[in-house]
Design a protein around this nucleic acid. Structure first.
Lengths: 158, 158
DNA sequence: GTGGTTGCAAATACTTTGCACCGAC
DNA sequence: GTCGGTGCAAAGTATTTGCAACCAC
């Protein structure tokens, strides 16, 4: 694959960025500077980001970036299956790079910390829903609210 | 308890409306016509409603009602513990009368139908989260997305 | 050069807030 | 009469869209 990017970029590009570049090209779309930086921001951590967090992050390097570009890019990447959109509540959506395995969020209502849990914990629930309710649960991006161990302790002390 | 309402109202009032009237009075708040009608709308079904659904429903009887009154009333009832707010995703909140037991939502991504599941199904999950992650899950209003049996069948046929 | 992409501004959807008047108590 | 509640309008927040300039191809 030959990118239009300067060689130095190409050599340091992460796999995910190359994947994005290819997927975009295959569908006749362009890999712009803003899109590359947005993918880079998304890949900067395993976590999830709101559109505004991505916007703020990329704007430090591309000050004229507009939020609508972020939304449009996330939409495009979502359609390509490279990004997943999660509704963690609070009236805003979160985005993270699509991964092989699924992960799930434990959101602490005390400190706001978001941790992840493994899928295995949910298997019994999934089976029970199918058996009892005929419901095929899509547990790819479940968000569970509650209290982390630290805030639980604080809570009891109060 | 003696309400300012005409006797006929008092006699036909549902228990929940009386509870609301008492709770409001106890905290030095007023039971207005709009608040009574909003509670009535909420109690018209076991389901959950968005603020706009309540607004539309009450406006047929009180055309000058304003949305902000609906939001403010829901907020007041929430503080009194009479109403629960649930984030079913999609950028809007849902409200329903607080019940003794908790209920949980199964939201079909195919037809949008929202059904309820009983709490028992979640107990094993709750225990596992505590044991494995030290996380005290607040599962009072869990929303699980997926596919109902009808849409599952359609999906397989396609 | 062409068509996809961007920045900008305006629109949309949901919710909140300031304020003067009103009404439950 | 008092203080809480309401309608109205405007603001706030998250997201989307129309459009002309722009740039990856």
């Amino acid at each position: 694959m030959q990118l239009y990017l300067p060689r130095a970029y190409n050599e340091t590009m992460k796999d995910i960025e190359k994947t994005a570049a290819l997927a975009l090209r295959e569908t006749g779309r362009h890999l712009t500077r803003q899109r590359r930086l947005i993918v880079e921001a998304l890949s900067s951590s395993e976590g999830h980001f709101t559109a505004e967090e991505i916007y703020d992050s990329v704007r430090s390097r591309l000050p004229r970036l507009n939020v609508s570009t972020v939304y449009r890019t996330l939409e495009a990447l979502k359609k390509l299956g490279l990004v997943n959109e999660t509704d963690l509540g609070g009236g805003r959506l979160s985005y993270h790079l699509a991964e092989k395995g699924h992960h799930h969020h434990l959101i602490c209502q005390g400190c706001g910390q978001v941790s992840e849990m493994d899928e295995a914990v949910l298997e019994p629930l999934k089976r029970a829903l199918g058996r009892k309710h005929g419901f095929r649960a899509d547990l790819r991006h479940l968000a569970i609210f509650g209290w982390c161990s630290r805030c639980s302790r604080k809570d009891q002390a109060a």
